[in-house]
Amino acid sequence: MGAALKRIEETREALVDALAERDWEAIGKLDLACRACVDEVIRETTDDEPELRSNLEELLGVYRQLIETAVGERQAIVDEMSQIQRAKSAAKVYHLFG
Score class of each variant (00 low, 15 high):
G98E: 07
L96M: 14
Y94R: 13
V41H: 04
A36N: 09
I27V: 14
R7Q: 15
L5D: 10
E49V: 09
W24Y: 09
Q85W: 00
V93H: 13
V41L: 14
T69M: 11
A87K: 11
T46S: 15
D48M: 00
G61R: 04
L19A: 03
I84L: 12
A70M: 04
E68D: 12
L15D: 02
T45R: 15
I27Q: 04
E58P: 05
A91Y: 07
V16N: 05
H95T: 06
I27R: 04
A20H: 10
M1W: 08
L66S: 00
V16D: 08
E58V: 06
A87C: 01
Q83I: 03
E80C: 02
A90T: 09
Q85N: 07
E9G: 08
D47F: 08
K92G: 01
M81E: 11
I27D: 00
V62K: 01
A76N: 09
E57K: 15
Q65K: 09
A87T: 11
L15C: 05
S89R: 14
A18K: 05
S89D: 12
A18R: 06
L59V: 01
D23K: 03
E80D: 11
G98Y: 06
Y94A: 10
R22D: 00
A14M: 05
A76S: 10
I77M: 14
E58T: 09
R43D: 13
R53A: 15
E73C: 06
E21R: 15
R43H: 12
L32Q: 15
H95C: 01
A20L: 08
L30N: 04
A33C: 04
G2P: 01
G28S: 13
S82A: 14
A14D: 07
E73G: 02
I8K: 04
Q85F: 05
A33Y: 05
A36G: 11
S54P: 00
E49F: 12
E68M: 07
E40T: 12
R7W: 07
M1Y: 07
E51Y: 04
F97Q: 14
T46M: 14
S82D: 13
R86C: 00
A20D: 08
Q85S: 10
E44P: 03
L96K: 13
I8Y: 05
D17Q: 11
F97E: 09
C37S: 15
D23M: 01
H95S: 13
E58H: 12
T45M: 11
A18D: 02
D17T: 10
K88I: 10
E51P: 00
A14V: 00
Q65V: 02
F97A: 12
C34Q: 15
R53G: 03
I77A: 14
R35P: 02
K29E: 11
R7E: 15
A76P: 01
H95M: 11
E44K: 13
Y63P: 02
Q83V: 06
V16C: 03
A18N: 04
R43N: 11
T45P: 08
D31I: 02
E44Y: 06
A18T: 03
A18W: 02
L60S: 12
D47L: 13
E13G: 11
K6I: 09
R74T: 02
P50T: 06
D47C: 05
E51W: 07
P50W: 07
R64D: 09
A90E: 10
E25I: 07
E49I: 07
G2W: 06
Q75A: 09
